[in-house]
Amino acid sequence: MKVANIDHWPGTPDEAVALQDRLRSLVVPENPRPPHFRTVAGLDSAYDDHGNVAAAIVVLDLDTLETVETVTARGTTDFPYVPGLLAFRELPTTLRALEKLTVTPDLFICDSQGLAHPRRFGFACHLGLLTATPTLGVAKNAWGDHAEPAPDRGSWTTITIDGDPVGRALRTRAGVKPVYVSVGHLIDLDTACAQVLALTPEFRQPETTRRADALCRQLLREIATGTA
C-alpha cells in the first residue's frame, strides 16, 4: 500500500505540536461519498523501555470477520513519551508496516484517539491524512468528559472537551466498560460507531484491535528474545 511521503519527521515535542496544529484543519469529519466498507484494517503498536517498537496490521473481511492479510514491522524510537504525542513514537513504524500490505483496506480502525484529543488531532487523524482513507479511533480510555452510557449494548453518550463534542463512549458489551470512539478522517461519528458495533460481536474491543494487539505483542516478545 502506498502512503504519503514524509520529508521531515518532528524530532521534538514542540515540533510535533506545531505539526498537529498545522494539519488539524485538513481533517474531514464526514463521509464524502456513501460508505461501502468491504475490508477493514486494525492497527496497533507496542514498545519497550529500550526504544523498540512493534507495529501490526490485520485486515478483515467486514462481512465474515475472516482475516484477509496480516503484516508487522519493527523499528526504534527516541521520541520522548508525551501524552498527546504518542503518534510520533508509533507512526514511523506503522507506516513501514502499511507499505507491506498488498491490499488497500476501505477503513482503518486505530487503537487510539481521533478528534477526542487535546488538539483535536490524535493518531487516527494523522493516519487518515497520510493514507487518504477513512479512519477512526477506538480508545480504551476517554480523553474528555462524558456521562456513563446505559448498560445495554449500543448505548452511548457524548464525549466533550472544553464543551465541544469530540466522540462517544460506546457500550459494545452489555454491562461492560464502554470503548471511546472518535472520528479520524473521512468518516462521520454515526458511521464510525456502527462499524465498531459490527466488529464487536463477542468482545469489548473490535476484532481488528484484538488481533493486531496479539500480533504486535508477539513481535515485541520476539525482539526481546532475539528471535525476530
Rank of each mutant, 00 (worst) to 15 (best):
M1S: 10
V3Q: 04
V3M: 00
A4L: 07
N5Q: 12
I6V: 15
H8D: 13
W9M: 05
T12I: 08
P13C: 10
D14G: 00
S25H: 15
V28M: 14
V28S: 15
N31V: 13
P32I: 14
P32V: 11
P34N: 08
P34R: 13
P35I: 10
F37T: 08
A41M: 08
A41L: 08
G42C: 11
S45G: 09
D49W: 01
V53D: 07
A54M: 08
A55C: 06
V58S: 09
L60W: 05
L60D: 02
L60N: 04
L65Q: 06
T67G: 01
V68E: 12
V68K: 10
T70I: 11
V71I: 09
V71C: 12
T72I: 15
Y81T: 06
L85C: 10
L85N: 09
L86D: 12
F88C: 11
E90I: 06
L101Q: 03
L101I: 03
T102F: 01
V103G: 01
T104R: 14
T104H: 09
F108Y: 15
F108W: 10
I109N: 03
I109S: 02
C110Y: 00
Q113C: 02
G114I: 07
G114T: 06
G114L: 08
A116R: 00
P118D: 14
R119C: 08
R120D: 08
H126W: 11
L127G: 02
A132I: 08
L136Q: 03
G137K: 03
V138L: 03
A139W: 02
K140I: 11
N141M: 11
A142L: 07
D145G: 04
H146M: 09
H146G: 05
A150T: 07
A150M: 12
P151D: 14
D152L: 13
S155Y: 03
W156V: 00
T158P: 00
T158Y: 05
I159D: 15
T160L: 07
T160Q: 09
I161Y: 02
I161T: 10
D162V: 01
D162H: 07
D164V: 15
P165C: 07
P165M: 08
R168E: 10
R168S: 05
A174V: 02
A174G: 10
G175P: 01
V176I: 15
P178L: 03
V179L: 04
V181H: 05
S182H: 00
V183G: 01
G184P: 03
I187W: 00
C193T: 07
C193V: 04
A194W: 00
Q195L: 15
V196Q: 09
L197Q: 06
L197T: 04
T200Q: 13
P201V: 09
P201I: 08
E202D: 06
F203Q: 10
R204G: 11
P206D: 06
P206V: 07
T208R: 09
T209F: 02
A212K: 03
D213P: 09
D213E: 13
L215G: 04
R217N: 15
Q218I: 04
L219D: 00
L219H: 00
I223P: 03
G226A: 05
T227I: 13
